[in-house]
Design a protein around this nucleic acid. Structure first.
Lengths: 204, 204
DNA sequence: TCACCTTTGTTGTCATTGACAGCATTGTTG
DNA sequence: CAACAATGCTGTCAATGACAACAAAGGTGA
């Protein structure tokens, strides 16, 4: 174990991000202090600046790892899901909601950073990648004839809004707890009704 | 005009909230400083503490005014809306989305505060009041036979999620701009499909 | 091997901030 | 008009983010 006696930490950048996320989770975003992070990692108070120009830069990077992990979870969940649109949507919903509840503060960070006019390009790209991944689900469903036709943005926006809204509400503890657990099935059913093909008698 | 020569400001508390919201809107939440607020209002750096024990207390109060205004806008919008569920839902959606885009950072504050385990009771109450107001729309629709039956939480949760998600996404600039403007109608249509009665042939 | 350069940490410093304590002024009420 | 409460002020402190100047480690090429 590197007993912190070494001048060079080894991977301070990663360590900072990890510890920062713990702090974020445990004590909220306002309690996150660069100096405290440094202390926790046994490093001088200015060391973090070598890896993050700014406190904001650290937060950006943190949000970025959030999107990466969200993408990852989502992909994994979809990989295991069946082929039908219903199954895939349910898998996606579960992945998103699970992530949101397990990383409430992080999710908040991921989206609140967008308010900043000069948000890092990487971050915006990551966010859009994530959005597109979800919208792809819809396109897929359309190809299978299980989702009504129409431009992707129009059809997908409702679905994406619903998923995001539910996840956000769950994360911010704004849902009655009993609903949250078992409500996913109902939510998916609602989504499916919302984007079902115009002529209901398409699928067997 | 009170030229700030007076020892007592008159209504420092309200002034602080007003100015705080401006700063929040213009420079984001991290830039909000009690001392700067005090300076702006021509008041000593410790004066705000007479009205807000804490920075957090100010933020809580700010979020509270947000919920109040949101309720207000929503009520006003509904008062002018027609009777049908479709019309009322559309009015609600427009009110929420308008509020969200016009007060993006504030909305963020309103919901992010919930993460705090010891969020003020008032704030939680306000949030729940707002949720209930929206859910009432659903109940109303059910009474009119324009919304499928079932426990309110189950039926309403999807609708509320969709509204909240769309508003949040719009506020955080995560929607393609062209979609945002004209997409409300489509969104409402999607919502209506999602909560339509099981037997479509109910209404003439 | 060793001189050089780059990366990564370190120490020192500064202005700003939030919080608190103690005092001053004003307004109110009996 | 004399308490007294409400509101504001000055002073101070520790913590913080940012920056500058310096130091150690880790290559890299002659």
């Amino acid at each position: 174990m590197h007993t912190r006696r070494r001048y060079h930490h080894g991977d301070l950048r990663a360590a900072l991000l990890t510890r920062a996320e713990e702090t974020l989770r445990e004590k909220g975003p306002t309690a996150l202090s660069l100096r405290e992070l440094a202390r926790d990692l046994g490093v001088s108070h200015a060391a973090p600046s070598r890896h993050f120009k700014d406190k904001q830069a650290l937060l950006d990077a943190l949000a970025l790892t959030g999107f990466d992990r969200l993408d990852e979870r989502m992909s994994a969940s979809l990989k295991e899901a069946g082929e039908s649109f219903a199954e895939r949507m349910k898998a996606a919903a579960r992945a998103y909601v699970d992530f949101a509840t397990a990383n409430a503060e992080l999710l908040d960070l991921m989206y609140s950073i967008k308010h900043d006019p000069k948000a890092s390009e990487e971050l915006i790209a990551a966010s859009q990648r994530w959005t597109r991944q979800t919208l792809n689900l819809i396109a897929e469903g359309q190809r299978r004839g299980e989702v009504r036709e129409g431009p992707l943005e129009r059809v997908g926006i409702g679905v994406f809004s619903t998923l995001h809204g539910y996840a956000t509400l769950a994360a911010s503890d704004s849902l009655p707890p009993d609903v949250r657990a078992e409500g996913l099935d109902e939510l998916v059913a609602y989504i499916l009704r919302g984007c079902a093909p115009e002529k209901p008698r398409q699928t067997a």
